[in-house]
């Protein structure tokens, strides 16, 4: 018997198998749009992170004498703002705040929402009902309105808008991770793991997480662009960063009055928000299709 059954494996070449995530990375690398977006994002993130080192000036020092210089002015490549501060420097420093306010709430919501959703999906029953109904209640409010209401109630400031955004992003992540978990939980290999005597924690760690990670991460990455826009929005209406902190949404607000005299400069923070948000969105799409292979 061994002879004939072993023959079934002989067609299989002796090469190492690639893991799932390296396969995803390989497919993602073949997609030019995703790679372009990734490059743009990495550049912007690095530039913001190292803003103190590479920025030509000080973000909070300006001079009324050189207010609203146009783009291309020597020494001020991207011009100056309404208080005469260097735009390039402000955009670089502003990225630190804007990106943090976009990425951190998603990360926190992923941690909290993902955990709650996985528990709800795996345990089911009453636990599921309680967690999901609570999420539904938050979900019932339009997310922007809810963020504004929470930030308004807590008052302006970095931490408060962080809390507001996180709370808004938790319910959708609970939903997604709960439905992914429910789906995986009903598969036979989870039954088989239970049949081998494994406890709930082991099963979640070994069998569930690896399989829900993909869809949940894709979804979370699509939330990044939303979070960036909402964070900028909160700052724009004065509920986020406070002047003189450079932040793209806030800059958009303060440059509002200059829109007729220097429309290009007034638009620059918006352009940054647009580029970052679009890149996150396209990258998320690319990630989705790169993962969408059995």
């Amino acid at each position: 018997m061994s002879a004939d059954t072993l023959a079934s494996g002989n067609a299989m070449p002796l090469r190492a198998s690639r893991g799932y995530w390296s396969g995803v990375w390989l497919r993602l690398r073949r997609d030019p749009v995703s790679m372009a977006c990734l490059t743009v994002l990495v550049l912007i993130i690095l530039a913001s992170a190292f803003a103190p080192l590479i920025a030509p000036g000080d973000p909070s020092v300006g001079s009324v004498a050189r207010r609203l210089r146009p783009v291309g002015t020597p020494g001020y490549i991207l011009g100056t703002d309404e208080l005469g501060r260097d735009m390039l420097t402000r955009l670089l420093f502003g990225g630190r705040m804007s990106l943090t306010m976009g990425i951190l709430p998603v990360a926190l919501a992923l941690l909290i929402g993902g955990t709650l959703g996985t528990i709800a999906g795996f345990v089911g029953g009453l636990t599921n009902a309680i967690i999901m109904r609570a999420a539904d209640i938050l979900f019932a409010f339009p997310s922007v309105l809810l963020a504004v209401a929470i930030a308004g109630a807590l008052g302006a400031g970095f931490v408060n808008s962080l809390v507001a955004l996180t709370v808004v992003l938790i319910p959708p992540l609970i939903r997604v991770s709960e439905s992914a978990t429910t789906q995986v939980r009903s598969l036979d290999f989870v039954e088989a793991a239970r049949a081998s005597g494994a406890g709930a924690f082991t099963i979640i760690r070994v069998h569930i997480l690896g399989n829900i990670m993909g869809p949940v991460l894709v979804y979370a990455s699509s939330l990044l662009s939303v979070a960036i826009i909402m964070a900028a929005g909160l700052s724009f209406i004065g509920l986020g960063a406070r002047p003189p902190t450079p932040e793209w949404g806030l800059m958009l607000n303060t440059l509002r009055n200059s829109i007729y005299s220097q429309p290009l400069i007034a638009a620059l923070p918006g352009v940054m928000i647009f580029i970052v948000s679009l890149s996150f969105n396209l990258l998320s799409d690319g990630l989705r299709s790169a993962m969408d292979v059995k």
Binding site: A3, D4, T5, A7, S8, N10, A11
Partner: peptide, 22 residues
């Protein structure tokens, strides 16, 4: 009396008669 092996991969067909390896 089972046939040994398994049906060929269409992307990687054996030369000649497709059944010959089995």
């Amino acid at each position: 009396e089972a046939i040994p092996g398994m049906p060929p991969d269409l992307a990687n067909m054996p030369s000649g008669c497709a059944f010959s390896p089995r």
